[in-house]
Simulated assay, not measured.
Amino acid sequence: MFCVAKRDSIREQLLALAEGDPSVVGAAITGSHAVDQGDRWSDIDVVFGIEGSLDSAMHRWTELLYRDFAAVHHWDLPSGSAVYRVFLLPDMLEVDIGFAPAASFGPDGPAWRTVFGHPVPPTQDDPSPSRRTLVGLGWHHALHAWICIQRHRWWQAEQWIGALRGQVLALACLRLGHPTSYAKGAHLLPAEVTAPLNATLVRALDEVELTRALYATMAALIAELALADAALSARLASIFSDLHVG
């Protein structure tokens, strides 16, 4: 596993290289290190504002990461007009480099620290998912988990049950003002929220166990939703009651 000193050195090297790249007109540190919440395990998150072709800049920087930093693999995560290229370096160090057009180089949340350049003002849009979306994903995942059990697709059913549990956690985080994505706020939830979710874990890939776990997860969704919208919770509970095995 990477050491902190090496990680920090690589981040500083990347920022210095960015400052010497004519196509990079701005750079920022994002993620946990932007708000002084990084720890021993935090990865490298930076964003570059690019003047000119994103594809050309990404190609050059990709060659650089493989040549000078021994990158093992990379993949892309588009986000609006930007593309986040995610690299894996030796010692399991993840490096996320966002490439944004110069005109849209700027923060989309509080985790941002400008290193150089002139970022555009943040948008007023809230990047957090809405409760409506989280609820919708919840009933969607419940329905598809149930269908997979009917089809005897055990692994797919297990996947949907886990995804449904994730929406319950996200709804609880949203209600209590914690981060909702990737379970980043789950460790902040009180035990009375998380303890009942132990029953939602799938212990075996068979119809009886998957059905038990699914019903427990649906009950957790209904209980969480009842705290914010009792009427919708009741309507969903009525719909869920029609889901029977067989």
Rank of each mutant, 00 (worst) to 15 (best):
E12H: 06
G52N: 13
R67S: 15
E158P: 01
R153F: 09
S32Y: 08
A183R: 01
Q167C: 10
A204I: 04
L77D: 13
M218D: 04
M218Q: 13
W139F: 15
A57H: 03
H74G: 00
D96I: 03
G49H: 12
A223I: 00
S42C: 11
H33L: 07
L169F: 13
D45M: 08
I10G: 06
T180H: 00
H178Y: 15
L134T: 08
H178L: 15
H187W: 09
A70N: 09
G106S: 07
R132I: 14
R203Y: 05
H187N: 09
R11I: 00
P190Y: 06
A204E: 10
Q37W: 06
A34S: 13
P179V: 10
S79G: 05
M58D: 09
E94A: 07
L214S: 03
Q156V: 14
H33F: 09
S128Q: 09
R203S: 07
I161H: 12
H152M: 14
L17Y: 06
A5M: 07
G162Q: 05
R235T: 09
A27P: 10
P179K: 01
Q167F: 01
R151M: 12
A103F: 04
T194R: 10
V46Y: 00
T180R: 00
Q124Y: 05
C3H: 03
T200W: 05
L169A: 12
V245P: 03
S238A: 15
A170C: 10
Y182Q: 12
A82K: 11
L15V: 05
A145E: 02
I149N: 11
I149A: 08
V168C: 04
S241R: 06
F2L: 03
S233V: 05
K184S: 10
A204R: 06
S42T: 12
G166Q: 06
G138V: 12
E94Y: 11
F240Q: 07
Q156E: 15
K184H: 12
M92F: 14
A102D: 12
R131S: 10
P121E: 10
A34T: 01
V193H: 07
S23E: 08
I161T: 11
R67G: 05
I149Q: 12
M218E: 15
W155Y: 08
A220G: 03
A234R: 14
V95I: 08
L214F: 02
E19H: 09
W61K: 02
S233L: 09
F48I: 12
L243N: 02
A234H: 11
A142R: 02
L93P: 00
G98D: 09
E12Q: 14
A103M: 04
R67T: 14
M218N: 02
W139E: 13
V135G: 01
D45I: 01
A82H: 05
S32C: 13
T123A: 14
F48W: 04
L164I: 02
G98R: 04
C148A: 15
G80E: 07
Y182T: 13
A216M: 04
L214T: 00
L225V: 07
A213I: 00
Q150K: 14
V83A: 00
V120K: 14
A226D: 07
Q167E: 15
P179A: 03
Q150F: 04
I149T: 02
A172D: 11
A28W: 06
T62N: 00
R153Q: 14
P129I: 15
A230Q: 15
A220K: 05
A102H: 13
M58V: 15
A199L: 08
D91F: 07
P119Y: 11
Q37P: 00
